[in-house]
């Protein structure tokens, strides 16, 4: 048990430092990105590099927790923009995940069937 715990902590430590390296490649020191002009100025100025680093670490952890293969986590992280990272931070579980997930029970089924027949929903041939 103790060993497992220590290994877990070490893995986390290593993954955080890899994340830092990945970030460093994106923007040269001192450069102000184009996003600055697109964001509301006060908001743009209030987003620090540390905020972005923390968001990356958090989203990485969530991706892994939701079953993304370790080897893919970094690649998926790198493809997200700053705004997307900040948007996803702490919220991966509440985002819409398109995938036809539906659990139906009795009365609900009947209501949906009715809505389907009058063209409000479109569930029953979809998966």
């Amino acid at each position: 048990m103790g060993f497992e715990k220590a290994r877990g902590a070490l893995t986390r430590l290593i993954s955080v430092s890899i994340i830092c390296m990945g970030f460093a490649q994106v923007a040269p020191a001192g450069m102000i990105g184009t996003g600055y002009l697109l964001e509301d100025e006060s908001r743009a100025a209030s987003i620090s590099r540390m905020d972005i680093l923390l968001a990356r670490a958090d989203v990485a952890r969530q991706l892994e927790a939701f079953g993304v293969d370790r080897a893919m986590v970094m690649e998926r992280l790198d493809a997200l923009s700053t705004a997307e990272l900040l948007e996803l931070e702490g919220k991966l579980d509440s985002q819409v995940a398109g995938g036809d997930i539906i659990a139906l029970i009795g009365a609900v089924f009947v209501v949906l069937l009715i809505l389907e027949l009058v063209g409000v929903t479109d569930i029953f041939k979809s998966f």
């Binding site: 991706l63 927790a65 939701f66 079953g67 993304v68 293969d69 893919m72 690649e75 998926r76 493809a79 997200l80 923009s81 997307e84 948007e87 996803l88 991966l92 579980d93 985002q95 819409v96 995940a97 398109g98 995938g99 036809d100 997930i101």
Partner: peptide, 23 residues
């Protein structure tokens, strides 16, 4: 699938679809 599927959510996030287009 490797780039956008999220097994724990049995689906894909909109942001990740955008991200995969960029890659």
């Amino acid at each position: 699938v490797d780039k956008v599927y999220l097994p724990g959510r049995q689906g894909s996030l909109q942001f990740e679809l955008l991200a995969a287009v960029r890659t």
